[in-house]
Computed example of a mutant assay.
Amino acid sequence: MQQDDILLRDLDDAGILRLTMNDTGRRNALSEAMLKQLGAAFGAAGGEPGVRVIILAGHGPAFCAGHDLKEMTAGRSGADRGKAYFAHVMAQCSGVMQAIVNCPKPVIAEVKGVATAAGCQLVASCDLAVAADTARFSTPGVHIGLFCSTPMVALSRNVADKHAMEMLLTGDMIPASRAAEIGLINRAVAVDTLQDTVMDMARKIASKSSMTLATGKRAFYKQCEMTLPDAYDYAARVMVDNMLAHDAEEGIGAFIAKRAPQWQDA
């Protein structure tokens, strides 16, 4: 397989961009090549007016198996036993996760197979996640003497502390039903309805003003890190600016007039 085939891109007429990890021989591992392509894809999509929603999926039995451990082991060959290389890969991976959060377009993970370690981190980093009821999730680093510290960052921002710590400390694989219960994913659905469910969700979101969605996504993640008073002060300023935007005036006017809004994404 050529490196340029490991991440497939398909944009439909509704502005829904499907990014499909396609390195099935490595279980869609986050190799350096995959991380580079994911980072570039999310960066480009964020500035592309024709993209309204992004779906991240994976071909094969694994959504994403996390870091490529064979590649990581090869990185130990340096005089520093791989310290510089490991730092580079961790920074690259963290950059991809933050690119998803910072992307102004909503990102939906469509999880058909297993998502482990940094693959689980990838799911947790997306704004929304829908999984097949056969999908499974884990942060199994403890099994190999490597605590899933970077996956912990995204995981702990999605699920309650004790649920996150149970996954991190035991390394146990959990089914999609449990992942939905603890908030790691939005819902688990039958595997043969997964893509249709995600596409229905994506189309619903794509029909909204992209300005409004970008405003809301940015504000959501920013206020999460604030104290309650600061969060309300910040959110109030965002609401004022949003009210002055064209699409808010148009949307409210359309609601009052009982007609469909005509978005300008501004």
Rank of each mutant, 00 (worst) to 15 (best):
A79D: 14
A79V: 15
A79L: 15
A79Q: 15
A79R: 15
A79K: 15
D80I: 03
D80F: 08
D80K: 07
R81A: 12
R81M: 06
R81K: 11
R81V: 07
R81I: 05
R81Q: 10
R81C: 05
G82I: 02
G82Q: 08
G82W: 06
G82K: 06
K83S: 13
K83C: 07
A84D: 09
A84K: 07
A84Q: 11
A84V: 05
Y85F: 09
Y85W: 12
Y85D: 11
Y85S: 11
Y85P: 01
F86S: 13
F86Y: 12
F86H: 13
A87D: 13
A87Y: 06
A87P: 01
H88R: 14
H88V: 03
H88L: 06
H88E: 10
H88W: 12
V89A: 11
V89K: 11
V89I: 15
M90N: 12
M90S: 12
M90D: 14
M90E: 15
M90Q: 15
A91E: 07
A91F: 02
A91D: 07
A91I: 03
Q92W: 14
Q92F: 10
Q92T: 13
Q92D: 12
Q92V: 11
Q92E: 13
C93D: 14
C93S: 15
C93Q: 15
S94T: 11
S94D: 08
S94P: 00
S94I: 07
S94R: 07
S94N: 12
S94H: 09
S94G: 12
G95Y: 01
G95V: 01
G95P: 01
M97N: 02
M97I: 04
M97A: 03
M97R: 02
M97S: 05
Q98H: 04
Q98P: 00
Q98L: 06
A99M: 00
A99L: 04
A99E: 01
A99I: 00
A99D: 07
A99H: 03
A99K: 03
I100F: 03
I100D: 01
I100W: 00
I100M: 06
V101E: 02
V101Y: 01
V101P: 00
V101C: 02
N102P: 00
N102E: 03
N102V: 00
N102W: 00
N102A: 09
C103S: 11
C103N: 13
C103H: 08
C103W: 09
P104G: 04
P104Q: 07
P104N: 06
P104D: 08
P104T: 06
P104Y: 10
P104L: 06
P104M: 10
K105V: 03
K105G: 01
K105T: 03
K105S: 05
P106A: 04
P106T: 04
P106R: 09
P106N: 04
V107R: 08
V107P: 01
V107G: 05
I108T: 08
I108W: 13
A109W: 10
A109G: 09
A109N: 09
E110V: 03
V111I: 13
K112G: 12
K112C: 14
K112M: 09
K112F: 13
K112V: 07
G113Y: 04
G113S: 06
G113A: 06
G113C: 01
G113V: 00
G113M: 06
G113E: 08
G113R: 02
G113K: 04
